[in-house]
Design a binder for these strands. Structure first.
Length: 643
RNA sequence: GCCGUUGUAGCUCAGUGGUAGAGCACUUCCUUGGUAAGGAAGAGGUCGUGAGUUCAAUUCUCAUCAACGGCUCCA
């Protein structure tokens, strides 16, 4: 009996029935066989030793395939578990999956702790075990036998896993002295794991529920050779250099102070310039799109948040109330209720709609202490907020216009690595996490989906991520160190209009409740600037740069001329500064380069005599001499075009 | 909030049971130099905070605050 095997390039070859992908690899070349980690058989990832009994499409997976890597890392997690069990007998294991970059294993060590020193010892042990070239042995086992095995071992976590597995589909994998409940697949043998780094030890709640016991999680990453590990570590170092917390300090953008409080950033002069440029952009854009600006107080009475329905959902993340004369006031954690009150302050006609109220609103959210993260997660935030009140028939158009605004902004900033996430409700949580309006949920979710499809925007749908008042589109981005954040959000709200008794008079002279769109394309200043710092690696484009031009006289003799150029620049609104220190030009250039100032004008005798400046661009070097009027024209046009 | 790690000058970091150092930054002086670090001198810290052990604590112990790595949560 033979089987026909089709390869990814379309070629078909015939083999003996029962042949394994590894044997096929060997038939092609020994070199290939050495690199094979696993296989994809008809799209399913399987061990390279899996016998193939029928015609199939086969892909041999190596380190270069994403699936190959995750198999490699999953096997590495087993190797880690083997080392841990050898070091800490009696340890119980939960799960050990591959992740984006590496793997982890969750375990219960009882009263023992794993320290940083232990990690080094475990690395060594793993290395030792890997060198034994232990085969990953797959074994099908009955549920009863599996339960018996882990009952004897006393591992209640694996027994918990077993509960939900159907009999007949249960497999064990054994390498060396370690056996684990696992569906696989795995790499052929441990010897492929040549470079090991255990990165960190952390706590993680069992099943991700904070009410459960906290297990010990060890993170690690492995590679088929030392060189790739070194490169990986190098890359992590590079990522740290563009961490917005580091850049923010170096460039004088923001700081924190213990007396002010955690999560309460102080914006320094350079950061404030970036804030003001962003606000200018937002105001221009929103004005052109028919938005009206409003200003609202930072606090409000408890009654408003009861009306809005925020309090029961949100209380934990609001600062506790201030009580005066028997009335409780809360710092606002969102701007919507205030804006709704502006809507309802006057009788509204359909002729006024859509009404778009915009504000860079200051909000306070009492985020849990462990969640604070530089500018990305703070307790005082400035939101590029607006609420659009519209009739149902205008909704799609308005929602699309908002989306288009997002795209326009992202183009200005050159943001292209993001994912649009359509966040939906979970029917099981209606009435708890979500307003109990099943019909409206489905309707509005479909409207939003249609907008995305019609705009041809790639997106992913995620259930159970919606706001309590409606579905939303979140723009997801990743920080330099790989953490995921929502940069911007565009939300539908079919609940608050009714709660606030908002209404407008429609064409039929009847009161109608508007739909509300909550949108924040530039998110918050905090997160957006945190993101931009990393996105640009601190090298802001000229229009955003806190200092746009630095004048660098070669000697004190030219300070007067340089100052006159500074004044000319300032006159046309260019942010220019003079470096009049008695330092050599090399030193001045170095310092200015490090501050990532986009333009440097070097001024010496030649320039003074000819009314010129020598232009140097940050990171690019000397651009030659330009007449002052000429370079000013170039600069102002660049700034005007937000380049 | 939970688990773990860390906390010494503005920044980056050494160091010690007998009250502290380096480099950069800062101030002054010398230098006036053409595209990524010129030289010298000076100033700057109750070693995160509070308690305990000790003849003596920055160092050991405990508590607390903050930051960092995760978990949970979220714009």
């Amino acid at each position: 009996m033979t089987v026909n095997i089709q390869f990814p390039d379309g070629a078909v070859r015939t083999y003996e029935q029962g042949i394994s992908p590894m044997a096929i690899a060997k038939s092609i070349s020994e070199g290939l066989a050495k690199k094979v980690i696993a296989s994809s058989i008809n799209g399913e990832i399987k061990d390279a030793s899996t016998p193939i009994n029928a015609d199939a499409a086969l892909k041999l997976l190596t380190w270069d395939d994403t699936d190959g890597r995750s198999t490699f890392w999953h096997s590495s997690a087993h190797l880690l578990a083997e080392a841990v069990e050898a070091t800490f007998p009696g340890v119980k294991f939960w799960v050990g999956p591959a992740i984006d970059k590496g793997f982890y294993y969750d375990m219960d060590l009882g009263d023992r702790k794993i320290t940083e020193e232990d990690l080094a010892a475990l690395e060594k042990k793993m290395d030792e075990l890997a060198k034994k070239n232990s085969i990953f042995l797959r074994k099908e086992i009955s549920k009863a036998d599996a339960i018996a095995y882990f009952t004897e071992k006393g591992d209640e976590y694996k027994l918990d896993l077993l509960q939900n597995l159907p009999d007949g589909e249960i497999t064990f994998y054994t390498q060396g002295d370690f056996t684990d409940l696992c569906r696989g697949p795995h790499i052929p043998h441990t010897g492929l794991i040549k470079a090991i780094k255990l990165t960190t030890v952390a706590g993680a709640y069992w099943k991700g529920d904070e009410k459960n016991k906290q297990l010990t999680r060890v993170y690690g990453v492995t590679f088929p050779n030392q060189k790739e590990l070194d490169e990986h570590l190098q890359m992590l170092e590079e990522a740290k250099k563009r961490d917005h917390r580091k850049l923010g300090k170096e460039l004088g953008i923001f700081c924190f102070d213990d007396d002010v409080g955690p999560g309460l950033p102080l914006w320094m002069p350079n950061g404030t310039i970036v804030i003001e440029e962003l606000e200018k952009l937002a105001k221009e854009t929103e004005h052109a799109a028919g938005y009206k600006r409003v200003v609202t107080p930072h606090i409000a009475k408890e009654s408003m948040y009861l009306t809005s329905g925020h309090l029961p959902y949100y209380q934990d993340s609001m600062y506790p109330p201030m009580e005066l004369e028997g009335v409780k006031y809360y710092l606002k954690a969102m701007n919507c209720p205030h804006h709704h009150k502006i809507f309802s302050a006057e009788n509204r006609s359909y002729k006024e709609l859509p009404l778009r109220l915009a504000e860079y609103g200051t909000c306070y959210r009492y985020e849990q202490s462990g969640e604070l993260f530089g500018l990305m997660r703070v307790r005082c935030l400035h939101m590029n907020d607006a609420h659009i009140y519209c009739a149902k028939e205008d909704f799609a158009k308005e929602f699309k216009a908002v989306n288009d605004m997002y795209i326009k902004y992202f183009k200005i900033f050159g943001i292209d690595k993001y994912v649009m996430r359509l966040s939906l409700h979970d029917p099981a949580k209606l009435g708890q996490k979500y307003i109990n309006e099943p019909e409206l949920w489905l309707q509005t979710e479909e409207m939003v989906r249609q907008v995305l499809i019609e705009s041809n925007i790639p997106y992913v749908e995620v259930p159970d991520e919606g706001a309590f008042y409606g579905p939303k589109i979140d723009v997801q981005i990743w920080s330099a160190i790989g953490r995921e954040f929502t940069l911007a959000t565009n939300q539908v709200d079919f609940a608050q209009g009714r709660r606030f008794n908002l209404s407008f008079t429609n064409k039929e002279n009847q009161a109608e409740t508007p739909l509300i769109i909550h949108r924040a394309p530039l998110g918050t200043h905090e997160r957006f600037i945190g993101f931009l710092l990393e996105h640009y690696a601190g090298k802001f484009p000229t229009w955003l740069a806190p200092v746009q031009v630095k004048l660098l006289p070669i000697s004190d003799k030219f300070n007067d001329y340089a100052l006159s150029v500074v004044q000319q620049l300032q006159k046309v609104g260019v942010r220019a500064e003079l470096d009049d220190r008695s330092e050599k030009i090399g030193k001045k250039i170095r310092d200015t380069e490090l501050m990532k100032v986009p333009y440097m004008f070097v001024i010496g005798e030649k320039e003074v005599n000819e009314n010129k400046v020598s232009v140097r661009r940050q990171g690019k070097g000397d651009m030659g001499q330009f007449a002052v009027s000429e370079i000013i024209a170039t600069l102002t046009s660049e700034i005007e075009n937000r380049q």
